[in-house]
Amino acid sequence: MDFYLALLQVIGIHALIGLSAYVVILTGQVSLAQAGFFAIGAYVAGMLTVLAGWHLIPALLAAGLVAGAVAFLVGFPALRVKGLMLVVATTAFGEAVRLFFFNFDYQVAKGGVRVGPLGGEGFKQIRFFPENGYTTLDVLVFIWVVVGVVMALLWWMDRSRAGAVLRAVGEDELAAQAMGIDLTAVKVAAMTAGGVIAGFGGAIYAHYTTHIEHFNFGIVLATFAIAYPILGGLSTAFGTVVAVLFIQGLLIEGLRFLGDWRNLLFGALIVLAMNLRPHGLLDAATTLRLRRLFGRGGAGRDA
């Protein structure tokens, strides 16, 4: 049982980082900076609960704000580069953040022990959950409430003008501008929203593991972040969550019985999936068909 609870916790956290990349990638920006925002969220929230003694909820919100503010600042220079250049620039940003925390010490004495981030040793004892008597199930519920709120907001966004504008920009920047869409505003807003969501994810992650280290936030995490929306398809936020379930649940946990061979299959299955469905699992056409099936969206002209 505990095994499944733990798995669902991981899935929730990965859903958040996947969703943070989803918002950004809708505008056509392949950002590998999400792990950096996630790291910022993790360290900020951890420091607020451990060093400043805050409750987790305000710490979580603050982490989202700080990560969002950094993402906002990253959004402007990111406008100037595209494609491969953006991939490299955001990778470098993510790595710079990681390396910053690799070299970041800020320890204070609390009740006789020194706590806080300590460079390469990481940041230990982020014990808000155990100190407040949260059980595994409580933590799970906490995680999924946050995921639920983010999902609800994104679902709403997907159905509103905001979601369509992000997609229009992602598909053809020039046409979008010619139709009166302010590219700067849209791309920076998407990057900021992605930063906030990643910040939430990081804040939860720090408290879920209680011990964070710089290498938790490397390129592998950044790659997973963009893998979820790409594999899941960009037509709905549910695609991203489905992809997280597929990768974390099915491929990583479900295939555990394969032992070593699992990891081999993992890469091969991603290659296969992209060859079979280059637009992702839930592409626009599929989503449209599903909506029709359930009687929404395709309700004709008086909808």
């Binding site: 598909e171 053809d172 046409a175 501008q177 010619a178 139709m179 869409i181 592409d283 449209l288």
Partner: peptide, 28 residues
């Protein structure tokens, strides 16, 4: 004026080599 502000100023265009938002629906 930047491109998007020219539309709001009152100029709209079509493209010679069609540039629609293919993954959006027609009305979108």
């Amino acid at each position: 004026l930047p491109m998007h502000r020219r539309l709001t100023a009152g100029i709209a265009r079509t493209f010679q080599n069609i540039r629609l938002f293919g993954q959006l629906t027609v009305w979108q």
